[in-house]
Design a protein around this nucleic acid. Structure first.
Lengths: 247, 247
DNA sequence: AAGTGGTCTAGACCACTAC
DNA sequence: TAGTGGTCTAGACCACTTC
C-alpha cells in the first residue's frame, strides 16, 4: 500500500469536514495560502486538493474572494403529477406543479417555424426536412438559470396556432393541442446524465463538478401519434426528480 | 476580452475533435509529451488540458498506457416496463444508436436483519430502531460494476421468508411479498444526481468526470402501506433512464 | 528499458474582489 | 492596496504498462 499523495490527504480531510457537517454550506474553506502553510506544501499541491473537491461538486471557488462550501437547495420536479390532465386542463401552467415554493421564470424565449433537426424527425414520425414549430427557452429560479428547454411540434399541427407565438395562452401548449384534437394522452421521458459542454456550463452558469441531466419528453396523442418532443437540460445538482406509476 | 489560457485552448481543440467524431471512442488521444511538444508548453500545462477533459467525462487516462476517448454505451433502465412498446412510438430513443442490451449479474450480496437506518425508518412508517430485512448487492455488466443497490423491508413482513435469504426464489422479492398479502401496487422513484463519493467511485470503478444517479424506489402495497425502500446508486454515465405515464 | 501518466516544488506573474 | 484565486514553467522523481 503506497502512501496516498499529500493532495489527496488534504482533500480527504476537507471532504470529511464537509460531509460530517463541520463545514456547512456557505462556510469559508481554508484557501490556497492557508493550506500551504498548515500542511507545508507548494501552492500547486494545495490547489490540487481544492480542485479535487471542486470536481466533486463540494466546494466552489470565487476568484479574489475565497473558497466556500457549496449549497444544495433542490427543486422538486414531479414527472408524473405535474402533467396530470387536471393540472393542465384548467388554464394552469405545468410548471406550477414544480414550483415547490420558489417561482420559476423564463428567459431567452425563441419561438419559430424551422426545419426539423435530423435527430428529432424520426421521433415525431416526420420526413427529414419537415417543418416544425420550435420553442426554445431558459428557466430561472431566484434569477439563476436552472434549465434549458427546446421543444418541437409538427408544423402541420402547431403552425398558425398560439403554440407558434410567444404567449401560448391559458393552459399552455398542451391545452392548445387539445383544442385541435391532438391533446397528449401519454408521455415518455428519457433521462441521461453527463458533465456539461462548455456552452451548457455557460448558459446554466455551472462550475466544475456540476453534472447536467438531459430529459427528453415524448408526448403522444390518441392512437400513439407523437405530437411533441421536448429536450430539457437541467442543472442536475439543483433538482430532485420524481416519477410514480402503478405496479 | 483576455486571451484564454493555453491549457483551455488545448482542451478546446481536443474537445472539438472528440465531439465532431474526428477522435472516436477508444481512440488514443495525444498524451502529455505530445502536447508539450506540439504546443510548446510545460508538462503541467499539458496535464491540465487533459485533466479538464477527464473532468468532463470525455477521456480516460490509463497510467503507463495512454489517454483515450471514453466510450458511451448506455444501459437502458425502464422504470415502467410493463406497457407494450408497440404503441407509443415503439419506445424510440434519441440515443437509440448507442443502446446496449447485455445481461446483468450480481455481486457482493449481503442479506440480513438489521436495525433500520434512521433516514429510512420514516419512509417505511417504522419507529426508529425497528428491525428490517436489508438486501445489499452490486450489479455488473460484462464484469464491470454499474450499480449498487440496498433495499429495506420491514422485518415484520419479510423476516423468516425467503426475502431474508440469498435466493429469493422465482419472481423475486415482489412475488414473495405478494404471497404474504403485501404485493406492491404502486411505485415512486426519486432521482438525484451528483458526483460520487470516493467509496462510491471505488465500488463502481469510476474515474473523474463520471456522475452518479441516486434512485430511491418506494414500493407501496394496497392501502398505501410502504413495503420496500430501495436505494440505488448508478454509474450515471452508463445509463439511459426511462419512465412513461398517462396524461 | 522505454514510454506514459502521476505528483511535487519554488518562484513568478496575472486577474479579480474587498476594503 | 492587500488578499485570494488562476496560470505557467523547468526540472525532478515515482509508478505503472508494454515489449
Amino acid at each position: 500500500m503506497p502512501a496516498p499523495a499529500p493532495y489527496r490527504l488534504i482533500a480527504d480531510e476537507l471532504r470529511t469536514a464537509i460531509l460530517t457537517g463541520r463545514l456547512k454550506p456557505g462556510d469559508r474553506v481554508p484557501g490556497e495560502n492557508t493550506l500551504m502553510e498548515q500542511h507545508g506544501v507548494a501552492k500547486e499541491t494545495a490547489r490540487r486538493a481544492l480542485a479535487t473537491l471542486a470536481a466533486e461538486g463540494l466546494i466552489e471557488t470565487r476568484r479574489g474572494s475565497g473558497t466556500f462550501v457549496k449549497a444544495f437547495r433542490p427543486i422538486r420536479r414531479r414527472g408524473t403529477k405535474r402533467l396530470a390532465q387536471s393540472q393542465w386542463g384548467e388554464g394552469r401552467s405545468i410548471w406550477e406543479a414544480d414550483l415547490d415554493d420558489r417561482p420559476m421564470t423564463t428567459d431567452r424565449l425563441e419561438v419559430g417555424e424551422v426545419d426539423c433537426p435530423p435527430h428529432v424527425a424520426p421521433l415525431l414520425g416526420l420526413e427529414p426536412g419537415a417543418r416544425v414549430v420550435m420553442r426554445n427557452r431558459r428557466y430561472l429560479v431566484d434569477g439563476e438559470p436552472v434549465m434549458l428547454a427546446v421543444s418541437y411540434l409538427p408544423a402541420a399541427l402547431a403552425g398558425g396556432t398560439r403554440i407558434a407565438e410567444a404567449d401560448t395562452g391559458p393552459g399552455g401548449v398542451y391545452a392548445r393541442l387539445a383544442e385541435v384534437g391532438a391533446g397528449p394522452v401519454w408521455f415518455r421521458e428519457e433521462v441521461r446524465v453527463r458533465m456539461p459542454l462548455p456552452e451548457e456550463a455557460e448558459a446554466l452558469r455551472l462550475g466544475p463538478g456540476s453534472p447536467v441531466a438531459l430529459i427528453v419528453r415524448h408526448a403522444y396523442a390518441e392512437g400513439g401519434r407523437p405530437v411533441e418532443v421536448n429536450e430539457m437540460t437541467l442543472d442536475a445538482s439543483r433538482y430532485l426528480l420524481e416519477w410514480e406509476f402503478p405496479a
